[in-house]
Computed example of a mutant assay.
Amino acid sequence: MRFQRLTITAIIVSCAIITIAPQAQAKMPANYVGGTAAGAFSGMTKTFEVKPDALRFKETDDVEFQSSIDARYRLPVLPISARTSIYLNNLSVQATGTYDLSIIPNVGAYIGGGVHIDEKTTPVVQVGAEAKFGKTVIYGGFDYLTELETGVAKAGFGYSF
């Protein structure tokens, strides 16, 4: 129930941002590829376990630290980005589209949604912020996987191109 309210709130906030924010090009121009310094799943998670006798998925209710490779591609004219994350610990992929909101030059926030694909495909709501310093991008955010009732907090570094 708590997670459903969070999802509905995120959707309402994203609609408000899209309506209120100026439709100008975002001032966070960086396309980048990076990796998370740390990420954590909470709730029921699946991790790929390698043992000498078998390869299998392990389910747990614990918080587990994850690593991922992340990428962002900003559309040239609109303040919209395509983002993807490949989670290495549980062999899953996440693809989202986000609305980018400028805060100051080279610093922005984003909100959006998409899908998380592993054994089961689930919708995801995503919020975060990023800042560019030269060719380095620092980013972080929170992803909520609605059907799995799992949250992912991420922080990472990327290389801008």
Rank of each mutant, 00 (worst) to 15 (best):
Arg2Ser: 06
Phe3Asn: 08
Arg5Val: 01
Leu6Ile: 04
Leu6Ser: 12
Thr7Asn: 15
Ile8Phe: 07
Thr9Cys: 08
Ile11Gln: 09
Ile11Ser: 13
Cys15Arg: 04
Ala16Glu: 08
Ala16Ser: 14
Ile17Met: 13
Ile17Leu: 15
Ile18Pro: 01
Ile20Lys: 02
Ile20Phe: 11
Ala21Cys: 05
Pro22Met: 10
Pro22Ile: 02
Ala24Pro: 03
Ala24Glu: 13
Gln25Tyr: 05
Gln25Cys: 08
Lys27Met: 13
Lys27Gln: 12
Pro29Phe: 11
Asn31Gln: 07
Gly34Phe: 12
Gly35Lys: 03
Ala37Cys: 12
Ala37Asn: 07
Ala38Leu: 15
Ala38Thr: 00
Gly39Gln: 10
Gly39His: 00
Gly39Ile: 04
Phe41Met: 09
Phe41Thr: 09
Ser42Val: 01
Ser42Ala: 09
Gly43Cys: 07
Met44Ser: 12
Thr45Cys: 04
Thr45Ala: 14
Lys46His: 07
Thr47His: 07
Thr47Asn: 12
Glu49Lys: 07
Val50Leu: 09
Lys51Gly: 09
Asp53Leu: 07
Ala54Cys: 10
Phe57Arg: 08
Phe57Trp: 13
Lys58Trp: 10
Lys58Met: 14
Lys58Thr: 13
Glu59Ala: 14
Glu59Asn: 14
Thr60His: 03
Asp61Asn: 13
Asp62Met: 01
Val63Ile: 11
Gln66Tyr: 04
Ser67Phe: 15
Ser68Ile: 07
Ser68Trp: 04
Ile69Phe: 12
Ile69Ala: 15
Asp70Lys: 04
Ala71Val: 13
Ala71Thr: 10
Arg72Met: 03
Tyr73Ile: 15
Arg74Leu: 13
Leu75Met: 15
Leu78Arg: 09
Leu78Pro: 06
Pro79Met: 11
Ile80Glu: 06
Ala82Pro: 02
Ala82Thr: 02
Thr84Leu: 15
Thr84Val: 14
Ser85Met: 13
Gln94Lys: 13
Thr96Asn: 11
Tyr99Ile: 10
Pro105Gly: 11
Asn106Glu: 08
Asn106Cys: 06
Ala109Met: 10
Ile111Ser: 11
Gly112Ser: 10
Gly112Pro: 02
Gly113Glu: 04
Gly114Pro: 06
Glu119His: 11
Glu119Lys: 13
Lys120Arg: 06
Thr122Cys: 04
Pro123Met: 06
Val125Asp: 05
Val125Asn: 05
Val127Ala: 15
Gly128Trp: 05
Gly128Ala: 03
Ala129Asn: 00
Glu130Asp: 14
Glu130His: 11
Ala131Thr: 08
Ala131Met: 11
Lys132His: 00
Phe133Val: 15
Phe133Lys: 07
Gly134His: 05
Val137Lys: 05
Val137Trp: 06
Ile138Gly: 01
Tyr139Phe: 14
Tyr139Asn: 03
Tyr139Ser: 09
Tyr139Ala: 08
Gly141Phe: 05
Gly141Cys: 12
Tyr144Ile: 00
Thr146Ile: 08
Leu148Pro: 03
Leu148Phe: 00
Leu148Trp: 02
Leu148His: 03
Gly151Val: 00
Gly151Asn: 04
Val152Gly: 00
Val152Met: 03
Val152Ala: 06
Lys154Val: 11
Ala155Val: 14
Ala155Arg: 00
Gly158Gln: 05
Phe161Asn: 14
